[in-house]
């Protein structure tokens, strides 16, 4: 069984004087069979400078430890560039895993995309 995951870039209205974020929506199941692929797709969308990334996980069905590793890798990468990774629409089961592993303290998590966009950091 191979999990299927899709990554879609969402159009974002300009946030005026703020840093305009890249918004990527993840759909499907994420596990060790496709985690590497997703990581490459995410990084392919990221410019190599200070940046703001929002991952919309509303349509993410399942995410195992390989998927969490991808999130951590992206988080670290953004941190090193003084950027920000925001997770929105975290499904309940994944939220429990975040709570169990204390990742809810590490990641910036917002309930919806609208919340995340309101809080774009200053450029």
């Amino acid at each position: 069984m191979t999990a299927v995951v899709e990554l879609r870039k969402l159009p974002v209205p300009s946030t005026g004087g703020l840093l305009t974020p890249t918004v990527l929506a993840v759909r499907g199941d994420l596990d060790h069979t496709n985690a590497t692929q997703l990581r490459q797709h995410v990084f392919a969308q990221l410019p190599d400078h200070r940046h703001h990334l929002v991952l919309d996980m509303t349509a993410l069905g399942f995410c195992d430890s390989s998927g969490i590793r991808v999130l951590l890798t992206v988080h670290t990468w953004m941190n090193e560039r003084a950027g920000l990774l925001v997770l929105v629409g975290v499904p309940p089961r994944l939220a429990r895993v975040f709570e169990l592993t204390c990742l809810d303290r590490l990641f910036t998590i917002r309930p919806t995309l609208a919340h995340a966009l309101r809080e774009s950091p200053a450029p």
């Binding site: 969490i68 951590l72 709570e99 169990l100 592993t101 204390c102 990742l103 590490l106």
Partner: peptide, 14 residues
């Protein structure tokens, strides 16, 4: 045993 962090994530994990 809630509240224990993923091991290897932070320098001063709890």
């Amino acid at each position: 045993t809630r509240g224990g962090m993923l091991v290897g994530m932070l320098a001063d994990a709890v």
